[in-house]
Design a protein around this nucleic acid. Structure first.
Lengths: 396, 396
DNA sequence: ACCCTTTGTCCTCTGAGTGGAAAAAGTCGG
DNA sequence: CCGACTTTTTCCACTCAGAGGACAAAGGGT
C-alpha cells in the first residue's frame, strides 16, 4: 500500500489536521467553530485535504437541530510508529493518526549494547506489529533516546549512559530502514509531550515532567513547546547537587541527585539494606530473585516494610529538594512525576510534595498540582507519535 | 505637542518599526533586504508609516554603487520613559525611539515607603527630565518593580519586599498620571531585556540574567522571549536552598541563597567582620562612614583586604552552586551577571565561573560564557523602554 | 559622454479570502 | 403529513493584499 505522501499545503490545512488529530472526527461546522475561517474558505481547504487522501469522509454527524452535517476524519490507514528507548528497555507502539495506541511491545534491553543491536531489536518489534495486521506500513516514526540529542539533525550528543551512540545518525539510519520520515528526541521530552497530548498535562502551557527511571531527567514545556536548550541537554537534572559532599557519582562530582535517588541508586540501597539485615522483606526477595530492583522496594513498601518505606521517603525528599528549586526558578503550572519508579506511588509523591511545599515560596506553590503521570509506559511512545505527527502535519 | 497616537496597522508595519528601532535609520533598500517583501509592497507600507508620522524621511543614504536612496527613520520626537524601581533606589530615564538613553536620573529611595510616595518621586523625576528639554511628553513608559507581577494587568502580586504594593494597580495609575500607555514587569526581567536589546545578550536566544542586588533574582529568556511563569514569579531564585540547614531567612526557611549572599547579606557579614576585628580595612571604613555596604566590600577587596575577598569569593561560590543547577536544568547559551554588586567585579565572576564549570556537566558548560552585564544601571531602564516599545510597535 | 547599477514608481495580474444568497437536508409542532 | 424554522452546504460575485515586470530617475566608473 502507498504510504502518506502528501503534506499540508498551508497553515490552514496544518491547523485542520491537528484539530482532527486532537479532537477526532468532526463535521465541517465543528471545525468552522474553531478555526475562524469563512465557511467557503473552510470548505475549499477541507476539499483539498480530501483530495490528498489525508482526510476522508466519515458518515453523518449528530444533528445540532438542523441539517445533519457530514463528518470528516483523518485517513484511518495512517500509522505512526512510536519508539521509546530507555536505559534498560525498548518500547515500540503503533498508533493511528489520532495517536491512539493500537499495539504496544516492550522488551528489556541494555542500551549500552549499542545502536546497531538496539535498532535490530526495534525493527524486529516493528515488523512483528506490522505482521499482526495493525499496520501495512508506517507514515512516520518518532523515537526517544535516553540522552541529549541535537534535535534538528536527530543525533545523540555526548550521552553519558550510552557512549556508543555519540554522533550516531539515528534519524538518518532509521529513516532509511523504515522508509518514512523520522524525528528523534530525548525520551524525557517525549514523555512530557505524551502527557501533554493525552495525559494529565492537557491544556497546561508551562509544566515540568520529572522522569525517575534508571536515571533522572526533566522535560520542560514552555508555552506548549518543549524547551531543549542550547545544546539539547536541558532538563538534565540528575547531576544537580542534592547533598553537598554526598555520595560520589559516576559523573565525577559528589552528591548528585542521581547518586542518591534513581532506579539504580534505589536498587543498590535496597541490596545494602537486605545484606545488612535491616529488612527481612527485602532479604527474602533477594534470596528468591537473586537481585533487587525498584519493583522489589515498591512491593516491600506495600507490604509495610519500614526500611523500604524509609528508602522511598528519603529519595522523595531528595527529589523534592531539587524540584523545589526548579519550581522557584521556573514557576510551572504543574509538575508531573513519571518513569519506572511510579510503582513507588503515593509514598514517593507524598514525600516530594511535602518537601516542595515546604521549601518553595507560596506564590509559586499556591496553586501547583504535583501529580503522577497517567499514561505510564505509554507516555513515551505517544509522545514519540506526537512528535512525528507535529512534524508531518506542518506545512512543508 | 501631540504625542504618538498611531499604531502599526499590520504585522509588516510592526516589523519595519522594530527594524528601524534596532538598526537605526535605513534606506528602503536596506529594509527590503531584511523583510522579504516585494519592493512595491514595501514602498506602500513605508509610505503609510510616513503618513502616520511614526516614521520620517532622513536624507540620502550612502551609495551602494547606483542611485542613492532616501533614508527613513523613526520620528525623532518620540520619547519613551524607562523606570526602574529597585529595593533601595529609583532610576528614571528618557529614551528616543531607538531606545538610546538621552537622560538618566537616579535617586536612593526605599520601596517600602509605598506606591504613593514612590510614584510621587518618579513623576517628579520625569518632570525634571522633561523640563530639561529632553522630551515634550512621553509616548509610552515601561516600569520595573522588585517583585512578581501579574503581567497582563500590570499589578504586583504578593511581593515579599514591598508589602504595601500588593495588588496596587501600577499600570493603571501610572498611565493616568503620564497620559500614555504603560507596561509593568519585574525589574529582573527588564534587566534581561535590556541586555538582550543593547548589551551582551544581543543575538542570544536562550539565556539567564542573574541580578544580585539587595536580593537575588534571575531573568529567563527562552527563544528571545521573557519567561514569566504561571503566576509571574519565575526567576525568583533568592530562596532556593544553597546551604542545607544554613542561615535562617526572612522567608521562614533556612539556607536560602539570599540569606547567604546578596547586597543585604554581604553588608551584614562585612559589619560582623569589622566588629570582630577580622578586617582592619572594613573597620576603618565603618568608622568613617558609620555603615557598610557592598561598595565598601568592593573597595576593601580592591585594596587587597583578605577578609573582603573571602566574603566575595564565598558568596560567588554559593551563587555558583545555585547557578550550576539552573544551568544543568535550563541549558542556556549565556549567563549574565548584573545588579548592584557588579562592583565586586571579577573576583565574584571568577568564583561563580569556577563553581559552575566544576559542578555542571561538560555538555551544558562546554561553550557557556558567564559574563558581567555591560549596561550597568542602564540595563533596567533600557529594558523598560524596550518593553513598552515592543508593545506599541505591535499591531493594535 | 557612455554604459552599467541601483533605486523608486507605476501598473497589471493573480490568488486568497469574505460575505451574501439560495439550495439542501434536517427537526419539530400541530 | 404539512409547514415553519434551523442548520449545513454550495455557489458566486466582490475586495484586497501582494507579486512582479516595465520603465523612469539618479547615481558611479571609465
Amino acid at each position: 500500500m502507498r504510504r502518506m505522501t502528501a503534506r499540508p499545503a498551508n497553515a490552514h490545512q496544518a491547523r485542520l489536521l491537528k484539530l482532527l488529530r486532537d479532537s477526532g472526527p468532526s463535521s465541517r461546522a465543528q471545525l468552522g467553530d474553531r478555526v475562524d475561517l469563512s465557511r467557503s474558505k473552510l470548505a475549499v481547504e477541507v476539499d483539498r485535504l480530501l483530495e490528498t487522501g489525508l482526510v476522508v469522509a466519515d458518515g453523518l454527524a449528530a444533528s445540532r437541530g438542523g441539517r445533519r452535517s457530514h463528518n470528516v476524519r483523518l485517513a484511518p490507514t495512517l500509522r505512526f510508529l512510536g519508539v521509546d528507548i530507555g536505559a534498560t528497555s525498548v518500547d515500540v507502539a503503533v498508533t493511528n493518526a489520532e495517536l491512539e495506541v493500537l499495539g504496544h511491545l516492550s522488551q528489556p534491553m541494555d542500551v549500552r549494547e549499542g545502536p546497531v543491536a538496539v535498532f535490530e531489536q526495534v525493527l524486529s518489534m516493528a515488523a512483528k506489529l506490522r505482521a499482526s495486521g495493525l499496520a501495512e506500513g508506517f507514515d512516520g516514526a518518532g523515537i526517544g533516546v535516553p540522552g541529549p540529542v541535537r534535535f534538528p539533525e536527530g543525533v545523540p550528543v555526548a550521552p553519558p549512559i550510552m557512549p556508543g551512540w555519540d554522533g550516531f545518525p539515528v534519524r538518518e539510519a532509521l529513516s532509511q530502514e523504515l522508509g518514512c520520515p523520522v524525528m528523534v528526541d530525548n525520551d524525557v521530552n517525549l514523555m512530557a509531550m505524551g502527557e501533554m497530548h493525552a495525559g494529565v498535562a492537557r491544556s497546561v502551557g508551562d509544566f515540568l515532567c520529572v522522569k525517575i527511571g534508571t536515571g533522572i531527567g526533566c522535560g520542560i514545556v514552555v508555552g506548549g513547546e518543549v524547551h531543549r536548550g542550547t545544546t539539547g541537554s536541558a532538563g538534565d537534572i540528575g547531576h544537580i547537587q542534592a547533598v553537598p559532599g554526598g555520595r560520589p557519582c559516576a559523573c565525577g562530582n559528589r552528591g548528585c541527585l542521581e547518586a542518591h535517588f534513581s532506579g539504580a541508586a534505589l536498587a543498590r540501597d535496597a541490596l545494602e539494606a537486605a545484606e545488612e539485615g535491616r529488612s527481612a522483606e527485602l532479604a527474602s526477595r533477594l534470596a528468591t530473585n537473586g537481585t533487587l530492583t525498584s519493583v522489589d522496594v515498591a512491593a516491600a513498601a506495600a507490604a509495610g516494610d519500614a526500611t523500604a518505606i524509609d528508602l522511598i521517603r528519603e529519595g522523595g525528599t531528595r527529589t523534592g529538594q531539587v524540584i523545589a528549586g526548579l519550581v522557584s526558578f521556573f514557576n510551572p503550572g504543574l509538575v508531573v512525576i513519571g518513569g519506572g519508579v511510579t510503582g513507588l506511588g503515593h509514598t514517593l509523591l507524598a514525600a516530594i510534595r511535602t518537601q516542595v511545599y515546604r521549601q518553595s515560596l507560596p506564590l509559586a506553590t499556591g496553586n501547583l498540582p504535583i501529580v503522577l503521570g497517567e499514561l505510564g509506559p505509554n507516555a513515551g511512545v505517544i509522545g514519540a507519535a506526537r512528535l512525528i505527527s507535529d512534524h508531518l502535519f506542518s506545512p512543508a
